[in-house]
Design a protein around this nucleic acid. Structure first.
Lengths: 188, 188
DNA sequence: ATTATTATTGACCGATCGTTCAAAATTATT
DNA sequence: AATAATTTTGAACGATCGGTCAATAATAAT
C-alpha cells in the first residue's frame, strides 16, 4: 500500500556501526552517516529517529553480535579451558578494528542512562556463559580453584578492553597475542 | 612593559585537562573550556593557539604527570615486586577519574600523528623504569623468569587500560582491586 | 485509473561550532 | 604624563551542526 524502502535497514545500521566505531558519537556527523549508510537524510530520521537513537541502536546491535561471537568461540572446544582460550584468541585476532563498546564506555562513562542499561543487559547476557566455562575449567583442574569465578569473569572482560585499547594504540599482533597469553596465565 | 596575565597558565591547563578527560575532544566545546578554565575566549586562543593545540598540550601534560606518578610509586617500596604492586594499587585507587590517555587512544586511534608522537614519547619514558623493576623482581625470584620483560611491561600497561575502562563503566572499587590482584597473579 | 500511504529528494531552519576582530583596559618603561 | 606592549572584553564571523519541511516518486489496494 506504500512505497517500499530502497535500502536494507540492517545493512544501513551496520554502516552506522562502522562509522561510530571509528569516530565515536560526537565525532560522527549526520552527513558522515548518510554518506556511509548510503541513504538520504530524511530516510535516516524517518527510520532511526535521530542521531542519538541511531547510536543507541548501533551499540545495542554491536553488543549483541559481540556477545554471540564470544559465546560461540567459548563453546567451540570440548575442554572448558580451551573454550576460554578460544574466546581470548578471537578478541586478539579481531582487535584491529576498534570496539564500539569500549569506545562508548570511554566517551560517556555512566553519564547516559540508556547506554548504561544497554551495557548492563549485554553484560548479563555474556557473563553467564563465561562463568559456566570458568567453573567447568576449575572442576577440570585447568583453572585455579581458589579464585572467585565472578572475579575471573571481570578479569576476562577487563583484559579484552585492555587488549583492544592496546590494539587501537597500534600494538602489533604478536604483542597482542602475548597479552592474551599473560591473561590466561593469571588463571593458573 | 605590558599587561600581565590575570590567570595561571598551568591552572587553566589543568582545568582543560579535567574537561577533556570527562568529555573527550569532540565532546568539549570552546565555550565549555572557557567556563572551566575561567578565562576569556580570546585569552584561550592567545595563550594556547586553538582547541586542537590545547588538547595536545593537555594530553602531553597529563601523560607526563601520569608517568611521574607511576614511576614514583614504582620506586617507593624497597623490594621490586612490591614496587610493581604499588604501581598497580595506585592505578586501582585512582581509577574513578577517567584517563585522558585511554580516552585519547579510543577517540583517535592512530589517526593523528601528533597524538601518536605524544603517546610514543610517554611510552618511552614509562617503559624503562617499569622494565628495570620487572627484571629486578625476576632476579629476586618474585616474578617468573621465563617471561619476556618487555611483554610484562606491555601487560602492565594494557592491564591499566583495562582497569580504567572497567572503572569508567562503573565497576566497584572492590572488584577493581580484584582485577589488580589478577594482573599481579599472572607474573608468578 | 484512482486513492491512500510511505519513501525519497533537496532545499532549508535556527543553533551552535571554532575562531577572529576591534576596542578598551592594564601594566612597565620613558 | 606619554608611550609601547600585552591582555581582556564582547560582539561578530562564516561554517557546520542536528533536524525539519514541502514537494515528488513509488508502491498496494480499491
Amino acid at each position: 500500500m506504500a512505497r517500499p524502502k530502497a535500502f536494507d535497514e540492517e545493512d544501513a545500521l551496520d554502516a552506522a556501526i562502522a562509522t561510530f566505531r571509528e569516530h565515536g558519537f560526537e565525532g560522527t556527523s549526520a552527513e558522515m552517516l548518510v554518506q556511509a549508510m548510503g541513504i538520504g537524510r530524511q530516510s535516516l530520521y524517518n527510520c532511526f529517529g535521530d542521531k542519538w537513537q541511531l547510536y543507541c541502536l548501533a551499540v545495542r546491535r554491536y553488543a549483541a553480535a559481540e556477545a554471540r561471537a564470544h559465546i560461540a568461540s567459548l563453546g567451540g572446544p570440548a575442554r572448558a579451558v580451551d573454550g576460554l582460550r578460544a574466546m581470548v584468541d578471537r578478541v586478539v585476532a579481531g582487535a584491529e578494528e576498534s570496539c564500539l563498546g569500549v569506545n562508548s564506555v570511554c566517551e560517556f562513562g555512566e553519564r547516559e542512562p540508556t547506554l548504561t542499561e544497554i551495557r548492563q543487559h549485554a553484560d548479563a547476557v555474556l557473563r553467564g556463559p563465561i562463568k559456566l566455562r570458568v567453573v567447568e575449567a576449575q572442576a577440570d583442574g585447568d583453572v585455579a580453584g581458589d579464585l572467585d569465578p565472578d572475579w575471573i569473569v571481570d578479569f576476562f572482560i577487563a583484559s579484552f578492553a585492555g587488549i583492544r585499547v592496546a590494539a587501537r594504540g597500534g600494538l602489533s599482533g604478536e604483542r597482542l597475542a602475548a597479552l592474551g597469553d599473560m591473561a590466561m596465565r593469571a588463571l593458573r
